[in-house]
């Protein structure tokens, strides 16, 4: 007998009690309905308060936040952020149309913008989030040519643009959105939930930022 069959049949003997049809139906129903459990009230608030909560929670975990009126204003906000932190005027982003359609040359002529997955020398990247979760100030990013995963981790500075209307109250709201876009019973290859910049407490429990991932996380909220 294969290891697989040995393990599964041992489990069946220990828990099965013979009612295979009933158990199968219970499992199929649970997976299909993916019912919500208790969701904290914290995120169950109107849109304006939700965005405020998202922002407050993100700042509480050392992210920084800026607001712009429309996606056309993102290039200027990015250039200003780079100047503020004495970073080179060079960023990399994926093929996401929101990023591609921003007026980079017009609004930030000194900024060099390249696309593709991150390279080790890149200091700053820009991603477009599929959503945010107000409950904990969490960004949700999905993999693909639009937002290569390495952009989220390799550069020391990660800038993420998110539409205010994409900020949800709970993780569960995001799952429903992803199911709608990608279908039931599957996920994009990688879903990254990002809550503040990288950190470690491994040296005498003192929190240090930038252990391996980005030292800085800057969130640009597009209010339009």
């Amino acid at each position: 007998m294969s290891a697989r069959d040995a393990i599964l049949s041992r489990i069946r003997r220990a828990t099965g009690r013979g009612d295979d049809a009933g158990r199968q139906a219970a499992v199929a129903e649970r997976l299909k309905s993916h019912r919500r459990n208790l969701i904290p009230e914290r995120g169950n608030i109107d849109a304006k308060a939700r965005i405020k909560l998202f922002e407050d929670m993100a700042i509480a975990v050392q992210a920084s936040v800026a607001h712009v009126a429309s996606s056309n204003d993102v290039p200027e906000a990015v250039a200003a952020y780079l100047r503020q932190h004495n970073l080179p005027q060079h960023i990399r982003h994926g093929a996401h149309e929101t990023a591609a359609n921003m007026p980079w040359a017009e609004k930030a002529p000194a900024l060099e913008v390249v696309t593709g997955p991150a390279e080790p020398a890149d200091e700053v990247s820009l991603s477009i989030a599929v959503g945010g979760v107000a409950e904990t100030g969490t960004l949700v990013l999905t993999s693909g040519p639009d937002n290569p995963t390495t952009l989220n981790f390799l550069p020391e500075n990660h800038i993420v643009a998110i539409r205010a209307s994409d900020v949800a109250g709970s993780y569960e709201d995001i799952w429903d959105r992803i199911r709608k876009a990608h279908g039931e019973g599957t996920l994009p290859r990688t879903v990254n939930m990002v809550t503040g910049p990288s950190r470690t407490g491994d040296i005498e429990q003192r929190i240090e930022l930038g252990a391996h991932g980005p030292r800085r996380l800057h969130i640009v909220i597009i209010d339009e």
Partner: peptide, 11 residues
């Protein structure tokens, strides 16, 4: 923590 910095779902 309210949530860890990175929660990563791989498929």
């Amino acid at each position: 923590q309210e949530f860890s910095a990175y929660t990563t779902w791989s498929t």
